[in-house]
Amino acid sequence: MILKNLLPSKRKMALTALIVGIGWNPALAQDAAPQPDPYKLQPTTKPLVIRSFIEDSPARSIAVGFPQGVHYCLNGNSGKLEYVWIGGFLDVGPDRGRGRGRGGKPNKILGQRKDLNLPAVPIRFTGKEKGASARFKGYRRGVGAPEVLMEWQGKSFKQIIRPALGGIGVTVRYEFEEMPEGSLQIYAPVQGWKTTSTLKLPEGTGWLSAEKQMAFEVTYLDQ
C-alpha cells in the first residue's frame, strides 16, 4: 500500500531499504502516507500544559496552550511569563524523538512568537526589590487555565494566565491569600503592548502605581 503510492524510483529505493535494512529515508515515508503529525499538539477543548525544552527558551519551560490559538511560555524556575504566541501550539516531536529517537531536544512552537519583555514578576510592592524573592511553586490544573502558584516575600499568590478578550494577548489574574506590605506597582511593557487592568492605572509605561486589592487582573494586548 505504501509502496504503491510512490514514484517508481522512490518505490525501488524503499524496497531496497526494506530488504537490506539500510539507507532508510524517512522522507519516503512522508511522501508515501501524508498523515497528521501526531507530535504537533493542538488544544481542542481545554488547555494543554507541557513541560519541556523549547527552542530559544529557558531550560525550565512550561508551554500552556489554549483552544483559542493564543499560547504562552512560562519560566518554570521564576514563574515569569516569557512570551506568548499565536497560531499552532507545539511540536513535541523533538522531545520524544518522533517515537523512535532518543529525544530530549527542544520542542518548537508552531505559531508566531511575541515577546513581552516583562520582569520576572511584573508586579511589586514599593520598598522591595522588584520580583527579587519571587518563587515559582508549581501549578494547579483543572478544566480552565492553570493556576500558577507563586510566593513573593513569603506571601503566596496565584497567577492565572489566559487568552485576552478583545485582541491578541493575555490576561493575568493575580489572587493573594495575604497582601504584602507596601504600595502596589504594576509593570507596563515599554513597547508594542497595551497594558490595562481591573485596577485603575495611570497612563504610561514601566512601573505604574495602583490601589491594592486581593485580586485583580492585568491585560497585555499586542499593538
Partner: peptide, 24 residues
C-alpha cells in the same frame, strides 16, 4: 485533590540543580 484519580496539584518540591537543554 478531589479523589478522581487525576492529579490536580503539581507542586515544586525542589529545583535547585542546574539544567541546560542538553538532552543528556
Amino acid at each position: 485533590e478531589n479523589n478522581d484519580d487525576v492529579a490536580d496539584l503539581y507542586e515544586t518540591v525542589n529545583n535547585s540543580w542546574g539544567l541546560t537543554d542538553n538532552y543528556h
